[in-house]
């Protein structure tokens, strides 16, 4: 079986599993909605203030719900030692990592898409544009790469839930900054271009971690 079909098979496994349990989507969406509700009572902003503060609030919401989601998404794999099982079958470890990352990417991206709706409906702040989809995609990819590695690490420590946040948040900070600034630019009417330095940061981050994380994952999967 060649690498590509293995990757697709593993990806399909994750998607089917998620379709049946809906663990990621339920956990992250309910949590994200709750943040929106709590925020509504926590802050009172005028329309002008929303334009500056809104993008930051949106992405903090995405990132926290995302971490809740990825924490749930891998639970099945750990409860049944499924990753070790797949590894023992002799599947290329980079492929295992990438399949997890891509399934994560799909979940996170979907979650973000759905979560924008309560943002528009409940808070009256509309950040949505087609260009934002590109930003969301790039962010979700970087976020998925990093959290696939770190959720795997956090799961084998004593207090997984705390460790997960402490590991993921400082590392994804650059792409959080980039996404927030890009969204702010988009909201105030700028056009997105490939030479925008925030796009360069997002792409560069993804590229660097796409090389390093599979290598590190392969090493720590040993035991």
């Amino acid at each position: 079986m060649n690498l590509m079909s293995t990757l697709l098979l593993l990806l399909k496994k994750d998607l089917v599993l998620e379709w049946r349990t809906k663990e990621f989507i339920t956990a992250s969406l309910v949590f994200g909605m709750l943040i929106v509700v709590v925020l509504n009572f926590g802050i009172r902003l005028t329309n002008d203030q929303w334009a500056t503060a809104g993008p930051g609030i949106l992405w903090v919401c995405f990132i926290l719900s995302g971490i809740i989601g990825v924490g749930r998404a891998f639970q099945n794999d750990f409860d049944n030692d499924a990753l070790i099982g797949i590894d023992l079958l002799g599947v290329n470890r980079d492929i295992i990592f990438l399949s997890k990352t891509f399934s994560c990417l799909i979940f996170v991206f979907t979650m973000e898409l759905v979560l924008v709706i309560p943002f528009i409906a409940l808070l009256g702040f509309n950040p949505f544009s087609v260009s934002l989809l590109a930003v969301m995609g790039l962010f979700s990819l970087g976020f998925s790469i990093v959290s696939t590695l770190f959720v795997f690490v956090a799961n084998q420590t004593k207090s997984k839930d705390v460790i997960m946040y402490i590991l993921i948040l400082p590392v994804v900070l650059p792409i959080l900054i980039a996404s927030v600034e890009l969204t702010r630019e988009l909201v105030s009417g700028y056009e997105l271009s490939f030479t925008n330095h925030w796009i360069v940061i997002l792409a560069g981050f993804n590229l660097v971690y796409l090389v390093i994380c599979p290598w590190l994952f392969g090493i720590i999967l040993d035991e």
Binding site: V153, Q156, L167, L173, I177, I201, F205
Partner: peptide, 21 residues
């Protein structure tokens, strides 16, 4: 091993954070 992983990721991350901030 986990600590080493973090050491490496952190080492790469620090310049990126500096640049983006």
């Amino acid at each position: 091993k986990f600590a080493a992983v973090l050491g490496i990721v952190g080492g790469i991350n620090v310049p990126i954070v500096y640049y983006s901030v």
